[in-house]
Design a protein around this nucleic acid. Structure first.
Length: 422
RNA sequence: GCGGUCGUGGCGAAGUGGUGAACGCACCGGAUUGUGGCUCCGGCAUUCGAGGGUUCGAUUCCCUUCGAUCGCCCCA
Protein backbone atom coordinates (compact mmCIF):
# COMPACT_ATOMS: atom_id res chain seq x y z
CA UNK A 1 0.00 0.00 0.00
CA UNK A 2 1.79 3.05 -1.27
CA UNK A 3 -0.23 5.95 0.05
CA UNK A 4 -2.56 6.26 2.96
CA UNK A 5 -4.74 9.05 4.18
CA UNK A 6 -3.17 11.52 6.59
CA UNK A 7 -3.40 10.57 10.23
CA UNK A 8 -6.70 11.48 11.78
CA UNK A 9 -8.55 11.97 8.50
CA UNK A 10 -11.29 9.88 6.95
CA UNK A 11 -12.60 8.81 3.57
CA UNK A 12 -16.37 8.94 3.48
CA UNK A 13 -17.39 6.29 1.01
CA UNK A 14 -20.73 5.62 -0.63
CA UNK A 15 -22.73 3.82 2.01
CA UNK A 16 -21.81 6.16 4.85
CA UNK A 17 -21.83 9.43 2.97
CA UNK A 18 -25.61 9.10 2.79
CA UNK A 19 -25.75 9.34 6.56
CA UNK A 20 -23.83 12.59 6.40
CA UNK A 21 -26.15 13.95 3.77
CA UNK A 22 -29.11 12.97 5.91
CA UNK A 23 -27.80 14.77 8.98
CA UNK A 24 -26.72 17.80 6.97
CA UNK A 25 -30.13 18.05 5.37
CA UNK A 26 -31.87 17.96 8.74
CA UNK A 27 -29.49 20.64 10.01
CA UNK A 28 -30.24 22.86 7.03
CA UNK A 29 -33.97 22.30 7.35
CA UNK A 30 -33.94 23.40 10.97
CA UNK A 31 -31.86 26.45 10.15
CA UNK A 32 -34.31 27.49 7.50
CA UNK A 33 -37.22 27.07 9.88
CA UNK A 34 -35.43 29.38 12.29
CA UNK A 35 -34.55 31.77 9.46
CA UNK A 36 -30.80 31.20 9.49
CA UNK A 37 -28.91 31.73 6.20
CA UNK A 38 -25.90 29.76 5.10
CA UNK A 39 -22.48 31.36 4.99
CA UNK A 40 -19.36 29.79 3.45
CA UNK A 41 -15.98 31.10 4.42
CA UNK A 42 -12.45 30.00 3.49
CA UNK A 43 -11.02 26.85 4.97
CA UNK A 44 -7.88 28.78 5.90
CA UNK A 45 -7.37 32.26 7.25
CA UNK A 46 -4.54 34.42 8.46
CA UNK A 47 -3.03 32.78 11.51
CA UNK A 48 -3.36 36.01 13.41
CA UNK A 49 -7.15 35.88 13.20
CA UNK A 50 -7.30 32.70 15.26
CA UNK A 51 -4.72 33.87 17.75
CA UNK A 52 -6.68 37.03 18.35
CA UNK A 53 -10.10 35.38 18.62
CA UNK A 54 -9.57 31.96 20.12
CA UNK A 55 -6.93 33.21 22.56
CA UNK A 56 -3.17 33.18 22.66
CA UNK A 57 -2.87 30.85 25.62
CA UNK A 58 -5.51 28.31 24.67
CA UNK A 59 -4.47 24.79 23.77
CA UNK A 60 -6.05 25.20 20.37
CA UNK A 61 -3.73 28.03 19.49
CA UNK A 62 -0.68 26.91 21.42
CA UNK A 63 -0.36 23.41 20.03
CA UNK A 64 -3.19 22.32 17.79
CA UNK A 65 -3.17 24.58 14.75
CA UNK A 66 -2.27 23.52 11.23
CA UNK A 67 -0.16 26.54 10.39
CA UNK A 68 1.87 27.09 7.24
CA UNK A 69 3.56 29.76 5.20
CA UNK A 70 2.17 30.23 1.71
CA UNK A 71 4.34 31.04 -1.29
CA UNK A 72 3.97 34.72 -0.55
CA UNK A 73 5.42 34.13 2.90
CA UNK A 74 2.07 34.81 4.55
CA UNK A 75 1.27 33.01 7.75
CA UNK A 76 -1.89 30.95 7.24
CA UNK A 77 -3.80 28.43 9.35
CA UNK A 78 -6.40 25.79 8.53
CA UNK A 79 -9.41 26.87 10.56
CA UNK A 80 -9.54 25.07 13.92
CA UNK A 81 -13.06 26.29 14.69
CA UNK A 82 -15.86 28.08 12.93
CA UNK A 83 -16.59 31.30 14.73
CA UNK A 84 -13.46 33.29 13.91
CA UNK A 85 -13.87 33.06 10.16
CA UNK A 86 -17.55 33.95 10.30
CA UNK A 87 -16.84 36.94 12.52
CA UNK A 88 -14.13 38.05 10.11
CA UNK A 89 -16.53 37.75 7.17
CA UNK A 90 -19.19 39.61 9.13
CA UNK A 91 -16.83 42.52 9.64
CA UNK A 92 -15.15 42.47 6.23
CA UNK A 93 -18.46 42.41 4.36
CA UNK A 94 -19.95 45.01 6.68
CA UNK A 95 -22.91 42.83 7.54
CA UNK A 96 -23.36 44.94 10.65
CA UNK A 97 -24.70 47.57 8.26
CA UNK A 98 -27.71 45.46 7.36
CA UNK A 99 -30.94 46.62 8.95
CA UNK A 100 -31.62 43.30 10.71
CA UNK A 101 -29.57 41.07 12.94
CA UNK A 102 -27.54 38.41 11.13
CA UNK A 103 -28.53 34.79 11.67
CA UNK A 104 -26.00 32.56 9.93
CA UNK A 105 -25.09 28.89 9.73
CA UNK A 106 -22.25 26.89 8.26
CA UNK A 107 -21.29 23.28 7.59
CA UNK A 108 -17.76 22.24 6.85
CA UNK A 109 -14.40 20.79 7.86
CA UNK A 110 -12.24 22.04 10.69
CA UNK A 111 -8.66 21.08 11.49
CA UNK A 112 -6.79 20.50 14.70
CA UNK A 113 -3.45 18.79 15.14
CA UNK A 114 -4.35 16.39 17.94
CA UNK A 115 -3.97 12.76 18.80
CA UNK A 116 -6.96 10.99 17.26
CA UNK A 117 -9.26 8.94 19.45
CA UNK A 118 -12.90 7.95 19.54
CA UNK A 119 -14.91 10.88 18.16
CA UNK A 120 -11.87 13.04 17.60
CA UNK A 121 -10.09 13.58 14.32
CA UNK A 122 -7.57 15.96 12.84
CA UNK A 123 -10.00 16.85 10.12
CA UNK A 124 -13.45 16.94 11.62
CA UNK A 125 -16.71 18.49 10.58
CA UNK A 126 -18.97 20.93 12.25
CA UNK A 127 -22.35 22.35 11.69
CA UNK A 128 -22.74 25.63 13.51
CA UNK A 129 -24.72 28.82 13.79
CA UNK A 130 -23.74 32.38 14.67
CA UNK A 131 -26.03 35.30 15.42
CA UNK A 132 -24.79 38.88 15.37
CA UNK A 133 -26.32 42.09 16.56
CA UNK A 134 -28.49 41.26 19.53
CA UNK A 135 -27.92 40.80 23.24
CA UNK A 136 -31.46 39.56 23.73
CA UNK A 137 -31.57 36.48 25.96
CA UNK A 138 -34.19 35.09 23.64
CA UNK A 139 -31.47 34.73 21.02
CA UNK A 140 -29.30 32.68 23.37
CA UNK A 141 -32.30 30.50 24.04
CA UNK A 142 -33.20 30.26 20.37
CA UNK A 143 -29.74 29.11 19.42
CA UNK A 144 -29.81 26.40 22.08
CA UNK A 145 -33.27 25.34 21.08
CA UNK A 146 -32.22 25.06 17.45
CA UNK A 147 -29.56 22.53 18.37
CA UNK A 148 -31.97 20.80 20.71
CA UNK A 149 -34.59 20.52 17.97
CA UNK A 150 -32.11 19.03 15.55
CA UNK A 151 -30.96 16.37 18.01
CA UNK A 152 -34.52 15.44 18.84
CA UNK A 153 -35.44 15.29 15.18
CA UNK A 154 -32.52 12.96 14.52
CA UNK A 155 -33.89 10.67 17.18
CA UNK A 156 -30.94 10.90 19.55
CA UNK A 157 -31.68 9.56 23.01
CA UNK A 158 -30.25 10.85 26.27
CA UNK A 159 -28.84 14.13 25.03
CA UNK A 160 -28.34 16.59 27.88
CA UNK A 161 -28.02 20.35 27.69
CA UNK A 162 -25.82 21.96 30.29
CA UNK A 163 -25.70 25.70 30.63
CA UNK A 164 -23.76 28.18 32.67
CA UNK A 165 -22.97 31.87 32.73
CA UNK A 166 -19.41 33.03 33.01
CA UNK A 167 -20.29 36.72 32.99
CA UNK A 168 -18.23 39.41 31.40
CA UNK A 169 -14.44 39.69 31.31
CA UNK A 170 -14.28 41.77 34.49
CA UNK A 171 -16.43 39.55 36.68
CA UNK A 172 -14.61 36.49 35.38
CA UNK A 173 -11.23 37.97 36.28
CA UNK A 174 -12.56 38.76 39.74
CA UNK A 175 -13.85 35.22 40.13
CA UNK A 176 -10.57 33.78 38.99
CA UNK A 177 -8.82 35.69 41.77
CA UNK A 178 -11.34 34.54 44.37
CA UNK A 179 -10.99 30.96 43.28
CA UNK A 180 -7.22 31.01 43.41
CA UNK A 181 -7.44 32.49 46.87
CA UNK A 182 -9.75 29.68 47.96
CA UNK A 183 -7.55 26.99 46.45
CA UNK A 184 -4.21 28.27 47.72
CA UNK A 185 -4.37 26.41 51.08
CA UNK A 186 -4.95 23.07 49.34
CA UNK A 187 -2.80 23.72 46.31
CA UNK A 188 -0.13 21.21 47.33
CA UNK A 189 -2.71 18.45 47.74
CA UNK A 190 -4.20 18.80 44.29
CA UNK A 191 -3.32 16.38 41.53
CA UNK A 192 -0.46 17.30 39.23
CA UNK A 193 -2.84 18.28 36.44
CA UNK A 194 -4.65 20.70 38.69
CA UNK A 195 -1.45 22.20 40.00
CA UNK A 196 -0.43 23.02 36.49
CA UNK A 197 -3.89 24.44 35.87
CA UNK A 198 -3.65 26.69 38.91
CA UNK A 199 -2.17 29.63 37.09
CA UNK A 200 -3.03 28.72 33.55
CA UNK A 201 -6.71 27.88 33.87
CA UNK A 202 -7.91 27.74 37.49
CA UNK A 203 -11.57 27.68 36.50
CA UNK A 204 -11.13 24.22 35.11
CA UNK A 205 -9.85 22.81 38.39
CA UNK A 206 -13.38 22.60 39.77
CA UNK A 207 -14.16 20.15 36.99
CA UNK A 208 -11.41 17.73 38.09
CA UNK A 209 -12.52 14.15 38.70
CA UNK A 210 -9.96 13.43 41.43
CA UNK A 211 -9.91 16.47 43.67
CA UNK A 212 -13.60 17.01 44.42
CA UNK A 213 -13.08 16.51 48.19
CA UNK A 214 -11.23 19.82 48.43
CA UNK A 215 -13.90 21.93 46.83
CA UNK A 216 -16.55 22.16 49.57
CA UNK A 217 -17.43 25.79 50.03
CA UNK A 218 -15.64 26.91 46.90
CA UNK A 219 -16.97 30.16 45.48
CA UNK A 220 -19.35 29.74 42.57
CA UNK A 221 -18.93 31.74 39.42
CA UNK A 222 -22.62 32.54 39.53
CA UNK A 223 -22.02 34.62 42.67
CA UNK A 224 -19.48 36.74 40.85
CA UNK A 225 -21.83 37.80 38.10
CA UNK A 226 -22.97 41.41 37.95
CA UNK A 227 -26.64 42.34 37.91
CA UNK A 228 -26.89 42.53 34.16
CA UNK A 229 -25.43 39.06 33.65
CA UNK A 230 -27.68 37.58 36.30
CA UNK A 231 -30.81 38.97 34.71
CA UNK A 232 -29.66 37.79 31.31
CA UNK A 233 -28.96 34.28 32.56
CA UNK A 234 -32.30 34.04 34.31
CA UNK A 235 -34.15 35.07 31.20
CA UNK A 236 -32.31 32.53 29.12
CA UNK A 237 -33.42 29.85 31.55
CA UNK A 238 -36.98 31.08 31.50
CA UNK A 239 -37.14 30.98 27.72
CA UNK A 240 -35.59 27.55 27.56
CA UNK A 241 -38.21 26.25 29.96
CA UNK A 242 -40.96 27.83 27.94
CA UNK A 243 -39.65 26.11 24.83
CA UNK A 244 -39.50 22.78 26.67
CA UNK A 245 -35.76 22.51 26.34
CA UNK A 246 -34.59 20.27 29.16
CA UNK A 247 -31.41 21.71 30.62
CA UNK A 248 -29.25 21.60 33.71
CA UNK A 249 -27.14 24.35 35.17
CA UNK A 250 -23.53 23.31 35.53
CA UNK A 251 -21.74 26.09 37.44
CA UNK A 252 -18.41 24.32 36.91
CA UNK A 253 -18.56 24.34 33.17
CA UNK A 254 -15.76 26.32 31.58
CA UNK A 255 -15.13 26.57 27.89
CA UNK A 256 -11.75 26.23 26.26
CA UNK A 257 -11.93 29.27 24.02
CA UNK A 258 -11.30 32.72 25.42
CA UNK A 259 -13.98 34.69 23.63
CA UNK A 260 -17.04 33.54 25.53
CA UNK A 261 -19.05 35.87 27.77
CA UNK A 262 -22.22 35.26 29.75
CA UNK A 263 -24.06 32.24 28.43
CA UNK A 264 -22.08 29.09 27.68
CA UNK A 265 -23.55 25.67 26.99
CA UNK A 266 -22.78 22.12 25.96
CA UNK A 267 -24.77 19.24 24.58
CA UNK A 268 -23.65 15.92 25.99
CA UNK A 269 -24.39 12.33 25.15
CA UNK A 270 -23.43 9.24 27.11
CA UNK A 271 -21.93 6.03 25.92
CA UNK A 272 -19.87 7.19 22.99
CA UNK A 273 -16.52 6.90 24.69
CA UNK A 274 -14.48 9.29 26.76
CA UNK A 275 -15.45 12.26 24.66
CA UNK A 276 -19.08 12.97 25.29
CA UNK A 277 -19.61 16.58 24.24
CA UNK A 278 -21.34 16.64 20.88
CA UNK A 279 -21.93 20.37 20.63
CA UNK A 280 -20.89 23.50 22.45
CA UNK A 281 -21.21 27.21 22.20
CA UNK A 282 -22.02 30.42 23.91
CA UNK A 283 -22.22 34.16 23.73
CA UNK A 284 -19.24 36.27 22.66
CA UNK A 285 -20.02 39.91 23.16
CA UNK A 286 -16.55 41.38 22.86
CA UNK A 287 -15.26 39.32 19.98
CA UNK A 288 -16.35 41.37 16.99
CA UNK A 289 -14.73 44.47 18.37
CA UNK A 290 -11.65 42.55 19.40
CA UNK A 291 -11.14 41.47 15.80
CA UNK A 292 -11.46 44.98 14.55
CA UNK A 293 -15.14 45.50 13.91
CA UNK A 294 -17.52 47.80 15.63
CA UNK A 295 -18.86 46.54 18.93
CA UNK A 296 -21.52 43.97 18.08
CA UNK A 297 -22.64 41.08 20.26
CA UNK A 298 -22.72 37.51 19.05
CA UNK A 299 -23.83 34.05 20.09
CA UNK A 300 -23.48 30.64 18.46
CA UNK A 301 -22.56 27.00 18.70
CA UNK A 302 -20.71 24.27 16.86
CA UNK A 303 -21.90 20.69 16.56
CA UNK A 304 -19.34 17.94 16.08
CA UNK A 305 -20.81 15.94 13.24
CA UNK A 306 -18.49 12.94 13.69
CA UNK A 307 -19.78 12.65 17.21
CA UNK A 308 -23.39 12.93 16.15
CA UNK A 309 -22.83 10.20 13.58
CA UNK A 310 -21.13 8.13 16.27
CA UNK A 311 -24.22 8.30 18.47
CA UNK A 312 -26.49 7.58 15.55
CA UNK A 313 -24.57 4.34 15.01
CA UNK A 314 -24.26 3.61 18.69
CA UNK A 315 -27.99 3.99 19.28
CA UNK A 316 -28.65 1.97 16.17
CA UNK A 317 -30.68 4.72 14.58
CA UNK A 318 -31.30 3.85 10.96
CA UNK A 319 -31.59 6.50 8.33
CA UNK A 320 -34.26 6.03 5.71
CA UNK A 321 -32.80 4.23 2.73
CA UNK A 322 -33.98 5.19 -0.70
CA UNK A 323 -33.63 3.41 -4.00
CA UNK A 324 -31.18 5.24 -6.18
CA UNK A 325 -31.91 3.37 -9.39
CA UNK A 326 -35.13 2.84 -11.31
CA UNK A 327 -34.09 0.56 -14.10
CA UNK A 328 -31.21 -1.59 -15.24
CA UNK A 329 -30.87 -2.09 -18.96
CA UNK A 330 -29.66 -5.55 -19.91
CA UNK A 331 -28.27 -5.53 -23.42
CA UNK A 332 -27.18 -8.67 -25.24
CA UNK A 333 -24.98 -8.55 -28.26
CA UNK A 334 -23.30 -5.83 -30.26
CA UNK A 335 -26.40 -4.27 -31.83
CA UNK A 336 -28.41 -4.26 -28.64
CA UNK A 337 -25.49 -2.73 -26.81
CA UNK A 338 -25.38 0.10 -29.32
CA UNK A 339 -29.11 0.65 -29.10
CA UNK A 340 -29.00 0.58 -25.32
CA UNK A 341 -26.75 3.63 -25.18
CA UNK A 342 -29.43 5.66 -26.92
CA UNK A 343 -32.27 4.27 -24.82
CA UNK A 344 -30.33 4.79 -21.61
CA UNK A 345 -29.82 8.41 -22.49
CA UNK A 346 -33.49 8.90 -23.29
CA UNK A 347 -34.47 7.42 -19.95
CA UNK A 348 -32.07 9.64 -18.10
CA UNK A 349 -33.16 12.74 -19.95
CA UNK A 350 -36.70 11.87 -18.93
CA UNK A 351 -35.66 11.95 -15.30
CA UNK A 352 -35.42 8.21 -14.80
CA UNK A 353 -32.42 6.83 -12.96
CA UNK A 354 -31.06 4.22 -15.29
CA UNK A 355 -27.98 2.03 -15.51
CA UNK A 356 -26.45 -0.55 -17.82
CA UNK A 357 -23.54 -2.97 -17.92
CA UNK A 358 -20.13 -1.75 -19.07
CA UNK A 359 -18.12 -4.94 -18.68
CA UNK A 360 -19.58 -7.06 -21.47
CA UNK A 361 -21.13 -9.43 -19.00
CA UNK A 362 -23.46 -12.24 -19.93
CA UNK A 363 -27.17 -11.87 -19.27
CA UNK A 364 -26.99 -13.88 -16.11
CA UNK A 365 -24.28 -11.71 -14.69
CA UNK A 366 -26.07 -8.54 -15.73
CA UNK A 367 -29.22 -9.60 -13.95
CA UNK A 368 -27.19 -10.46 -10.91
CA UNK A 369 -25.65 -7.04 -11.02
CA UNK A 370 -29.09 -5.46 -11.33
CA UNK A 371 -30.29 -7.51 -8.42
CA UNK A 372 -27.37 -6.38 -6.30
CA UNK A 373 -28.17 -2.74 -6.91
CA UNK A 374 -31.69 -3.18 -5.61
CA UNK A 375 -33.24 -1.77 -8.75
CA UNK A 376 -36.93 -2.33 -9.30
CA UNK A 377 -36.96 -3.02 -13.03
CA UNK A 378 -34.69 -4.69 -15.50
CA UNK A 379 -35.23 -4.31 -19.21
CA UNK A 380 -33.84 -6.97 -21.49
CA UNK A 381 -32.86 -6.10 -25.02
CA UNK A 382 -31.38 -8.89 -27.14
CA UNK A 383 -30.98 -9.51 -30.82
CA UNK A 384 -34.41 -11.15 -31.02
CA UNK A 385 -36.22 -8.27 -29.36
CA UNK A 386 -34.34 -5.79 -31.48
CA UNK A 387 -35.46 -7.55 -34.63
CA UNK A 388 -39.07 -7.52 -33.49
CA UNK A 389 -38.84 -3.95 -32.23
CA UNK A 390 -39.61 -5.00 -28.68
CA UNK A 391 -38.07 -4.98 -25.26
CA UNK A 392 -38.74 -7.20 -22.26
CA UNK A 393 -39.55 -5.41 -19.03
CA UNK A 394 -39.00 -7.43 -15.91
CA UNK A 395 -40.02 -6.58 -12.37
CA UNK A 396 -37.20 -8.06 -10.37
CA UNK A 397 -38.97 -8.73 -7.10
CA UNK A 398 -41.95 -10.57 -8.58
CA UNK A 399 -39.99 -11.89 -11.55
CA UNK A 400 -42.91 -11.03 -13.77
CA UNK A 401 -42.11 -9.82 -17.22
CA UNK A 402 -43.93 -8.33 -20.18
CA UNK A 403 -43.09 -7.38 -23.71
CA UNK A 404 -43.27 -3.72 -24.71
CA UNK A 405 -42.89 -2.19 -28.18
CA UNK A 406 -39.54 -0.49 -28.24
CA UNK A 407 -40.89 2.87 -29.35
CA UNK A 408 -43.25 3.04 -26.37
CA UNK A 409 -40.64 1.95 -23.86
CA UNK A 410 -39.41 5.28 -22.51
CA UNK A 411 -42.94 6.62 -22.28
CA UNK A 412 -44.02 3.47 -20.47
CA UNK A 413 -41.17 3.78 -18.01
CA UNK A 414 -42.04 7.40 -17.29
CA UNK A 415 -45.55 6.29 -16.36
CA UNK A 416 -44.32 3.49 -14.16
CA UNK A 417 -41.64 5.37 -12.26
CA UNK A 418 -43.31 8.73 -11.89
CA UNK A 419 -46.55 7.15 -10.81
CA UNK A 420 -44.95 4.76 -8.40
CA UNK A 421 -42.41 6.32 -6.12
CA UNK A 422 -42.50 10.05 -6.40
C1' G B 1 2.92 15.70 23.42
C1' C B 2 2.35 10.86 26.58
C1' G B 3 0.49 5.67 27.51
C1' G B 4 -2.15 0.60 26.49
C1' U B 5 -3.64 -2.75 22.49
C1' C B 6 -3.23 -3.93 17.40
C1' G B 7 -1.61 -4.11 11.75
C1' U B 8 -2.29 -11.44 7.40
C1' G B 9 -6.57 -11.44 0.47
C1' G B 10 -12.21 -6.75 -1.22
C1' C B 11 -14.17 -7.98 4.02
C1' G B 12 -13.99 -11.24 8.51
C1' A B 13 -10.43 -14.43 10.46
C1' A B 14 -6.71 -18.95 11.58
C1' G B 15 -1.50 -19.90 11.51
C1' U B 16 3.96 -21.36 11.66
C1' G B 17 11.62 -19.84 12.36
C1' G B 18 11.86 -23.68 6.71
C1' U B 19 8.89 -27.02 0.36
C1' G B 20 2.44 -24.62 -2.73
C1' A B 21 -0.12 -19.12 3.86
C1' A B 22 -6.28 -22.59 6.63
C1' C B 23 -11.42 -21.41 6.72
C1' G B 24 -15.91 -18.17 6.02
C1' C B 25 -18.23 -14.13 3.27
C1' A B 26 -17.95 -11.34 -1.12
C1' C B 27 -16.50 -11.51 -6.14
C1' C B 28 -15.59 -14.06 -11.11
C1' G B 29 -16.52 -18.41 -14.25
C1' G B 30 -19.07 -23.07 -15.28
C1' A B 31 -23.16 -26.74 -14.62
C1' U B 32 -28.10 -23.91 -17.26
C1' U B 33 -25.92 -22.12 -26.38
C1' G B 34 -30.73 -15.77 -23.56
C1' U B 35 -33.21 -14.88 -17.50
C1' G B 36 -30.98 -12.97 -10.89
C1' G B 37 -31.75 -14.59 -5.27
C1' C B 38 -31.06 -21.93 -3.98
C1' U B 39 -27.50 -26.05 -5.05
C1' C B 40 -22.97 -28.18 -6.92
C1' C B 41 -18.03 -27.56 -9.23
C1' G B 42 -13.85 -24.45 -10.27
C1' G B 43 -11.04 -19.69 -9.77
C1' C B 44 -9.45 -15.72 -6.61
C1' A B 45 -2.75 -13.30 -1.16
C1' U B 46 4.53 -14.85 -5.82
C1' U B 47 2.42 -12.62 -0.02
C1' C B 48 1.53 -11.49 5.72
C1' G B 49 1.63 -2.21 6.99
C1' A B 50 6.79 -0.12 5.59
C1' G B 51 12.21 -0.12 6.36
C1' G B 52 16.34 -2.35 8.64
C1' G B 53 18.67 -6.31 11.72
C1' U B 54 19.47 -11.53 13.67
C1' U B 55 19.55 -16.26 10.87
C1' C B 56 21.58 -21.08 6.15
C1' G B 57 16.30 -19.38 6.07
C1' A B 58 11.34 -14.82 8.85
C1' U B 59 4.83 -13.34 7.78
C1' U B 60 6.56 -15.57 12.42
C1' C B 61 12.38 -13.13 16.85
C1' C B 62 14.61 -7.84 17.58
C1' C B 63 14.80 -2.51 16.35
C1' U B 64 12.87 1.74 13.85
C1' U B 65 8.92 3.94 11.41
C1' C B 66 3.93 4.67 9.56
C1' G B 67 -1.02 3.79 10.60
C1' A B 68 -5.49 2.01 13.34
C1' U B 69 -7.82 1.82 17.97
C1' C B 70 -8.71 3.17 23.07
C1' G B 71 -7.29 6.41 27.03
C1' C B 72 -4.59 11.07 29.32
C1' C B 73 -4.11 16.50 28.37
C1' C B 74 -7.45 19.37 25.75
C1' C B 75 -11.59 19.57 22.88
C1' A B 76 -16.64 19.36 18.59
Amino acid sequence: MRYQKPKGTQDFLPGVVEKWQYVEKKARDWCHRFNYKEIRTPIFEQTELFIRSVGETTDVVEKEMYTFKDKGDRNMTLRPEGTAGVVRAYIENKLYGEPDIQKLYYIGPKFRYEQPQSGRFRQFHQFGVEVFGSTAPSIDAEVISLGYSLFKDLGLQGVKVEINSIGNKESRAAYRGKLQEFLTPVKEKLCSDCQSRFDRNPLRILDCKKDQQYFDGAPSIIDSLDEESIVHFEKVQKYLSEMDVKFEINPKMVRGLDYYTDTVFEFKAEGIGAIDTIAAGGRYNGLVEQIGGQDQPGVGFGIGLERVLLILDHQDIQIPEENLLDIYLVALGELAEEKSVKILNELRQAGIRAEKDYLGKKMKAQLKSADRQKVKYAAILGEDELERGEIVLKTLESREQSVIPLQNFVEEMIKKTKGGNM
